[in-house]
Design a protein around this nucleic acid. Structure first.
Lengths: 245, 245
DNA sequence: CGGTCGGTTGAAAACAATCAACTTCTGTGG
DNA sequence: CCACAGAAGTTGATTGTTTTCAACCGACCG
């Protein structure tokens, strides 16, 4: 419900494609001072991806940092025998690509057609070293990411399939709200396989669990890619382990 | 399970007790310029904990940042019905206590008698804002933490009990080496319950799996709290999913 | 109109959890 | 020094949730 942002005028000359600077306070690059914004823009590139397109692969040289402008990006890690763990779904305002080793620790693929901001990792580091406000913003975001990852560990290590799915749907709903979409029905752009690999389950278990939850009146599946959260209190009770399983 | 308030044990004098600045390049505060070091020391306090003592609890106000000097700290999250997930074991050089929300997202307890550096969160933020080199170091460490958390998601979501335990023992060995201890035998200061809660298993499964691995000649358990990694290649093969399960 | 892909459903198998008994270790107090 | 109690760990039997294997359905497409 925010009115037009005065900063929009500043970014107008950067072309209509990149909106990374009017993603309100969600993007790590948002809300910067005009000077910080100018600096960041000076090293920015754009990238558009088709659905299913790979941005980079686990093990590639970590040459770029990315920020999602539009679409949905999936990050995943592979075991040598093909088992896969999806470690995150990224929406507008999220960033990815930082690596402690010089090699990307995960593969990044677009789930839906996506627009990204791209920053050379070297230039970004140089810019961070001279732009404290940017560095601080990034730290805040990294701390958030870490807390989110820890939450996910609790889910993966200790929750039942039903709890996992409930938690996942509520997370998507929360993020939809953060993007000023309604809390329900929600867009679920990822396949059953991606959901399964995110939650440490199999496609069959995801499918079965959704069916059961539908029968229980917790959700409805009006069309592919859409889930209606009919009983969000019930979902919360399940997700928080307050519902006997 | 409330222990005595650890703050009562605050050591006024920094003296020779705090070694956080000679933990080589592992601590986020190490290797700083003399000036950066001076600033950091000016806001530092010390804290010593008995084994099993609680440093802070999930949900407490996040007032302090800590850095481990000696000992081992366990971070964990609880579900309302008591299920627990250990999200990390911290050794000298590791830090903890950053929170995106103002409340700690996990409980921190000492596993063995520990010494910590303690920094007021407010002062630390102020210091970070004026000390770019510190901010950069912290970013590097946060990126490492995040990569580690993502690794753990792969473990929790996609590995068998045997793979989890192998991975865990090798991780402890790697960290022992980083602390200039031999890669084997390794100290395993945590209980079976803590291991289980870290790996998303039960105590019984941890115990059984260790027994099986002992029978297979992969490890030996010469005394409680010590594990001998007899066949580290074998352990690596299992941990990486190259050993048929 | 066959073919593929994503998704659902069914039956069987498997891995880990649960329930339970027992052992070992440790610390305490007689 | 020994006896005992409690905690931590191990082992066994059984159960159960999730996986695996398999068949099927509907949509989309050449």
């Amino acid at each position: 419900m925010n009115g037009p942002d005065p900063l929009l005028k500043l970014v107008a000359d950067s072309g209509p494609l990149c909106r990374c600077c009017d993603l309100e306070d969600s993007a790590f690059c948002a809300g910067l001072s005009p000077e910080g914004l100018r600096r960041l823009r000076s090293i920015r590139g754009n990238l558009t991806c088709e659905a299913q397109e790979t941005v980079f692969r686990e093990g590639d040289n970590a040459e770029n940092i990315y920020s999602v402008v539009q679409g949905c990006i999936k990050l995943s890690k592979l075991l040598s025998d093909g088992r896969r763990q999806v470690i995150g779904f990224l929406f507008p305002g999220d960033f990815f690509g930082f690596s402690p080793s010089g090699l990307y620790g995960y593969t990044a693929e677009a789930i839906s057609p996506s627009t990204l901001c791209r920053f050379s990792e070297q230039r970004m580091k140089a810019l961070l070293a001279t732009t404290p406000e940017l560095e601080q913003r990034l730290r805040t975001r990294l701390v958030m990411e870490l807390a989110f990852a820890q939450e996910q560990m609790l889910l993966l290590g200790r929750m039942s399939a039903r709890e996992k799915i409930s938690h996942f749907l509520l997370m998507l709903s929360r993020r939809a709200v953060a993007r000023h979409d309604p809390p329900s029905p929600i867009a679920v752009p990822m396949s059953r396989l991606d959901m399964a690999d995110y939650l440490g389950l199999t496609i069959e278990t995801v499918s079965r669990t959704l069916t059961t939850m539908k029968k229980d009146g917790l959700i409805a599946l009006p069309s592919p890619g859409v889930v209606d959260l009919l009983d969000r209190d019930g979902l919360h009770r399940i997700a928080d382990g307050r519902d006997g399983g």
